[in-house]
Amino acid sequence: MNKTKRAIFQSAIKIFSTNGYDGATMDEISASAGVAKGTVYYYFKSKDEVFKYIITEGVRLLRQQIESINIGEGNYDYKLRELSKDQLKLVYENRDLFKVIMSQAWGGKIRHFQLRELLKVYMEDIENFLIKAMDDGTIKKCESSFLTYIYFGTLVSVAVYNVINNDSMKLDEITDNFMEHLLNGIK
């Protein structure tokens, strides 16, 4: 992505995060990016197109992490911890993007369905990862689809917890706590 498109991308995330989808305007995005409105329209035909680009890139980042850890060295006990840590780190480093994605996951408009389709593919990546962890013996065998949503929901909750508590916990500490409760339950 070139410098101008990156500036538009980052500004759009900020504007969507602050104002919500409905409150965001192409004028605000262009002003925040420091480019003419026509420049924004050169790269994106509409606010919908900007939004779609943001969510596509955001989910692509999440999926890339899964792929890189999956093909990396180590057993799945190690890989599961690294995946959890890296996913949390990505959320913390891209809070506004995370906020945009999570705020738009519900609803009945085309953009909501598009986001859910992207998240569905991401969830399939997580599920495939967890199946390999089951096959490796790292986690007990169970219904993988349900486990995937438990994993994702818990990970999102941990991210929200840390944001609400002003990042009082360090990433390694959060990951250790997450892994302890994920692998050993709350019993």
Results as ranks from 00 to 15, higher is better:
F113W: 08
T138H: 04
G72C: 12
Y151S: 06
I126T: 01
N162V: 04
T148D: 03
E143M: 05
L119D: 03
N75C: 11
Y53W: 12
Y53G: 06
S103E: 12
V50K: 00
L83K: 00
S144D: 06
G137E: 07
M102F: 13
Y149M: 14
I164A: 12
G107D: 09
M123F: 10
F113I: 09
I55G: 00
T56L: 10
S84C: 11
N94T: 06
V156M: 10
F98N: 09
L61C: 10
F51E: 00
E57M: 13
N75I: 05
S145N: 12
I150Q: 08
V158P: 01
I110R: 11
D135F: 06
L90V: 06
E143V: 06
E124S: 13
V121W: 07
G74F: 09
L147I: 00
V59P: 02
R116D: 05
L155F: 07
T154M: 15
Q87V: 12
D135V: 08
L80A: 05
E67Q: 15
K47G: 03
N162G: 11
T148Q: 04
N70D: 15
S145Q: 09
E117W: 10
K132R: 11
I139G: 03
I69T: 05
L115S: 03
M102W: 11
I55N: 03
D135S: 10
V158C: 08
M123P: 02
I69P: 02
E82Q: 15
K99D: 15
L62E: 07
A105D: 10
I150L: 12
D125P: 04
I66P: 02
E93N: 13
F44Q: 01
G108T: 14
A159E: 07
C142T: 14
L88I: 10
A159W: 00
M102P: 03
L115D: 02
L115V: 06
G137M: 03
D77S: 15
Q104G: 11
M102Y: 11
Q104A: 11
K47P: 01
G107R: 08
R60T: 04
M123S: 15
L83H: 01
G108L: 12
F129Q: 09
E143H: 08
M134K: 06
R116Q: 11
M123E: 15
V50A: 01
I71M: 10
F129S: 13
Y122V: 02
V121G: 11
D135K: 09
E73S: 14
L62D: 04
A159V: 03
I110K: 08
S145F: 08
R95L: 09
A159S: 14
L118H: 05
L61T: 08
F51K: 00
E57S: 14
